[in-house]
Amino acid sequence: MREVVAEAENPVMLYSIGKDSSVMLHLARKAFWPAPPPFPFLHVDTTWKFQDMYRFRARMAEEHGLNLLVHVNEEGLARGINPFDSGSVVHTDVMKTEGLKQALDKYGFDAAFGGARRDEERSRAKERIFSFRTAQHRWDPKNQRPELWRLYNARHRRGESIRVFPLSNWTELDVWLYIHREGIPIVPLYFAAERPVVERDGTLIMVDDERMRLEPGEEPMRRKVRFRTLGCYPLSGAVESEADTLPKIIQEMLLAKTSERQGRVIDYDEAASMEKKKVEGYF
């Protein structure tokens, strides 16, 4: 993070409100202490996040005096894009991927921190920590730079930008353990609690606000559930769980042995590989 701040003209930290973002925020506060993190935080808001997430975002911005930028793809909204009618792929693409590009262009950010890790998926194993994008935000797989020792080459031309993944070498367990050890606050949705859900195609979806469209015959039921990853609530599957403390969550995660991404509805939707998504600018 210090390296990017030293080399980039206008860095930003992407803030998705999830646990990885919580860890990133914590690390940023550490890296620059006693100065506050010398960059803004950007939330690309699809408007479909859980209400708990919005509350948490407001609390963090206030507690840490963050310069928080919220960007919504207004064009997408105007076109009526939503997770129900548009499907998860189009919704994510327009509201998240397009929205991110718009925001980066609007503010002229040349470096953006993200929380992705190499252990998340087999194909991520080879990702660089500094990932270069063209002025059109395209990831050119053939033009990525070797990363030796602790030397990162962040030089880039005007218009080009870098995505930087400081947590690349962390595992999911490392993230949880760090949250536990450092007492980092996370959105309550990660902890098991009684919540109203419906079961849809074998996935438990939370009825988080009045916008949730129920299919004929669907009746919200109260179940003790928690979320392993957080996104747009109609696209995030909950798991039934009794884990209401961090150690219990970690225990459950270690014993359950189902990889994290399975909870993301987005992954089931299309056989698009990560690479394709990335070439297109998905973070």
Partner: peptide, 30 residues
């Protein structure tokens, strides 16, 4: 388990190094 890389190579994606993670009772490994 590792063959993810082969397919990517065919797509012309340059892979210099792939990193994988595991741990034992005593150590964490990359």
């Amino acid at each position: 388990l590792l063959d993810g890389l082969a397919a990517e190579r065919e797509q012309g994606i340059t892979i210099d190094v792939a990193y994988r993670f595991f741990s034992t009772d005593r150590r964490k490994y990359i």
